[in-house]
């Protein structure tokens, strides 16, 4: 695994993503998903909303980095608000 040049922060990052994916898979099995149409006027399931959240969070972090500077904890707060909004209204 040396060639992959692992670091703790990246490892934690991937563990969080993997945990999210597994959690949502388990949730999808236990409580089957109901598609609904939100403010984007597209049909989304829980998994879709997770995808939209993760992809959007990546862009929020990049925008924060480019416009504000290296203060990622604050960007993460914005991401959490964004995630809540996505799961509530999209």
């Amino acid at each position: 695994m040396d060639w992959m040049a692992w670091t703790w922060p990246t490892a934690i990052f991937f563990m969080v993503i993997a945990t999210l994916l597994i959690t949502f898979t388990v949730l999808a099995i236990k409580f089957p998903e109901t598609p609904r149409t939100g403010i984007l006027r597209i049909e989304t399931t829980r998994g879709d909303r997770l995808f939209i959240t993760l992809l959007g969070s990546a862009f929020i972090n990049l925008a924060w980095l480019g416009l504000v500077g290296v203060q990622q904890p604050l960007a993460l707060v914005v991401c959490l608000i964004y995630a809540a909004a996505v799961f509530r209204w999209v």
């Binding site: 060639w3 992959m4 040049a5 692992w6 670091t7 922060p9 990246t10 990052f13 991937f14």
Partner: peptide, 11 residues
């Protein structure tokens, strides 16, 4: 994943 690891390091 390797690319992500590279992106936060210098070599």
């Amino acid at each position: 994943m390797t690319v992500v690891n590279y992106s936060v390091q210098d070599t």
